[in-house]
Every structure is written in C-alpha cells, then in structure tokens.
C-alpha cells in the first residue's frame, strides 16, 4: 500500500489540469500525450517486425 501511495505521489491528480493553447486550439497535456502515444504506436505497429513472420515466409 505504501508503495502504491508513493507511486501515486509522483503524479499529483488533485491539481488543476495543464492545458496548451494555440490560437483557438486548446488541449490538455494528458489528451495530447495520449494522442502522441497513439501516433507512435501506429508507426511502430507498421515498422516493427512481427515474431515468426520470416519463418512463415520460409514455409510458404
């Protein structure tokens, strides 16, 4: 429990959220991080080698 509480203290969730504003665009840092992670995941999914793919090609 103490470990979990110390981990929770790393990310203070009781404060107001942080926002980025650029002209009429306003987005929270949390949402921006999720969007960046989705784009990174998408790119990695396209380029990362899939386990066993080369073996399957050899068996064809």
């Amino acid at each position: 429990m103490a470990f979990l509480l110390s981990f929770a203290a790393l990310i203070p969730l009781d404060n107001l959220g942080h926002y980025i504003q650029w002209h009429f665009i306003e987005i929270s840092i949390a949402n921006l991080i999720v969007m960046i992670l989705m784009v990174v995941t998408f790119i990695v999914a396209l380029v990362a080698p899939f386990p066993g793919r080369s073996r399957r090609k050899e068996n064809r």
Binding site: V44, A45, L46, F50, R53, R56, R60
Partner: peptide
C-alpha cells in the same frame, strides 16, 4: 494469410 503477421493486425 501471411500478410496478417504484422503488428497492425493486432489492434
């Protein structure tokens, strides 16, 4: 099919 062995098909 072989082309399904890609991470993009995992989602």
């Amino acid at each position: 099919p072989t082309y399904v062995s890609s991470w993009i098909y995992v989602f």
